[in-house]
Write a protein that binds this DNA or RNA. Structure first.
Lengths: 205, 205, 205, 205
DNA sequence: CATGAATGAGACTTCATTCAT
DNA sequence: CATGAATGAAGTCTCATTCAT
């Protein structure tokens, strides 16, 4: 995935500038949308000329690629840790949601891009991993919900598939309004969100 | 004469072809994103040449404009009817959510566009009504939630603003997966969704 | 030169509308320039749709053609009358200038178009008569000036060719500011102009 | 960086290529008219592709802008020098005319463009300076002529306003036929022209 | 005679990308 | 590493023109 033109330097000497530019690019992509973002805008923000970006990256596409695959790689490391812990359904959902909001906290821009551009990009062969990830995603969440229903932890009268969609979307869309360092910590947001989804907003009678 | 200075929303005798094209355009915009959609793609889908679109519309921009303002106009007619009925907080939320899903059913494409492109477009003066609408939107939902808390219908331990965001997003994001004529009627989806949000997915103990 | 699609009506029944439209077109061409004038603008001014113009005329080009050839036809009728009268050089110049300003008074728009678009249009085969006219033009004026020098009516120390150019341009450029029905009659303008060119603006010492 | 927000007239270190292209563009604009000149034609003449022009310039419009404002800037520097010298009316007219023909000699293309396109372009806000310049222009010439009449240097029986128009037009229209390096130097043309305007072409009796 | 709708060529412009320096 | 200049494909839009009704 790294640039093919790059000198074969060892990982010991990490190209500082590279990830710096990537972070800038992510921010701009998130703010303006991938298509609407010109390579020049990224370069401007990075303090260089458009052409100079091509020393570091193959193409605009490979920038988002790196941004998204980086984010998904990290996300799955956390998700897998949760899933491998074989907690109960409710606790699994809680952990997944919490990790999701933490990821939004760490990689807000990447998540926003993922949320907005996933569908377009998935059409390109190079981004097949987006679809793969979504499949795994669905399996994990849907499976947990179903397990919860089977174990009488979640209500049986709900359409599991529908519930999955609601939950999935709400978590990720949060990336569009979340601002790191704001009033709420990711854990606090997760708690509030879980409270709503698990127990409802209505007062119990 | 059909072009230039035509009121974007209404017309005494709506030229058949116009709304036909608009529906097609909405579909393509929703599927590919506004920026990524070329005028030629719309024309192709409408069975005409790109240039011919400009007999009916001033610009690509004015097409989305008409799509979005049409959708918002209709939406607010329904919302206002609900709000004017002065129901209780829970019933108001139920009615708003139901109307929202109905609107998704009727104007899926428009809602999807609204969801995805709102932020970019709102930067243009011509689309200021998007921001205005969002403000009214927030006032209506937030107000109802707050009233519910005051009247002990909704839980007091939830952050109302956060809850508003969760609810708002989830409803509209549904436009990205909803397919009219699918398994669930909008009313059924609303019921499921309300059940989750109001009472939670966890089994009561 | 008339439209080939026109019903073969006799000249006895002159198509009123035709010359009406032509006058409007001339006005717009003069104001905006031939290239910058769209066929729709002419149609607007004539109270019809762009397509409808093509019932009366073959093309935008044939409109200017008719405007210019009509103007030049009339102009040469007058010029020829003057030249055939075989006046003295000074009187000939006076008469030509006077007729020119009269023509500007009658066909201001056509003259302005001639002045501005002549060069472009002359490149097209159909407008060769523009070049022909200019040649005849030069012959008439230059000849008169030379005759005047030979007969000691005009100063011998002036470059005749240069003088011709100055005189020619000044007369026609007047079309760009002249407004029929203004303060000065064409004859008055001609008198002022001739006074300047023939006797100079300096006080004689 | 050469693009966007660059002062249209001056630059400390004028990029070679830029003014080269500008000179070519001026030539083409003058020959074919601004509207009729395609950006591709300019690019062809400059030996590049149409799109490449946009590295140097914002738009076709900003090219004429730079051409015209450059020309007017230089012209006014000369005119101001003349006016500040506070010569007599006749000498002032002589100096202004001479400077004008010199300017035509230096910037023939720009003058021709100014002459032909001034009116259209002045409608655009960006070209308001054209109107401003024309106002100053009128003030300078008209004022000098009036002073001349008051001082009995110019004939009192001439309409000053009309004379101003004749003189103004004739000088500038010369740009449409003048060829630098031709038979006559600008000074020679000015002398001939002044001789005609000041003393007339008729032999004194 | 005129309308309404469309065509098709071509205009200006944008932008990712390349490459010599 | 970065710049400056250019490429070439593609995009939005304009406009003269046509034609069935």
């Amino acid at each position: 995935m790294p640039n093919k033109n790059k000198p074969p330097a060892a990982a010991a000497a990490p190209p500082e500038r590279r990830s710096e530019i990537l972070a800038i690019a992510a921010e701009v992509f998130a703010a303006q949308g991938y298509n609407a973002t010109t390579v020049r805008r990224i370069a401007d923000a990075a303090g260089m000329l458009a052409g100079s970006l091509y020393y570091h990256f193959d193409s605009k596409e490979s920038m988002v690629d790196e941004i998204l695959s980086g984010f998904l790689g990290e996300l799955w490391a956390r998700y897998d840790a949760v899933l491998d812990a074989r907690l109960g359904p409710r606790e699994t959902i809680e952990a997944l949601v919490t990790e999701s909001f933490r990821e939004i906290d760490r990689h807000r821009a990447a998540v926003a891009i993922y949320q907005k551009e996933s569908r377009h990009l998935a059409a390109l062969p190079r981004f097949r991993y987006l679809t793969d990830s979504q499949t795994r995603f669905e399996r994990a969440w849907l499976g947990t919900l179903e397990r919860g229903v089977a174990e009488h932890v979640f209500r049986a009268d709900l359409d599991v598939r529908l519930t999955y969609r609601f939950v999935r979307d709400t978590v990720w869309v949060a990336a569009s309004w979340y601002r790191p360092g704001g009033l709420h910590s990711p854990e606090e947001i997760a708690r509030q969100y879980l409270s709503m989804v698990l127990d409802g907003i209505a007062v119990r009678t």
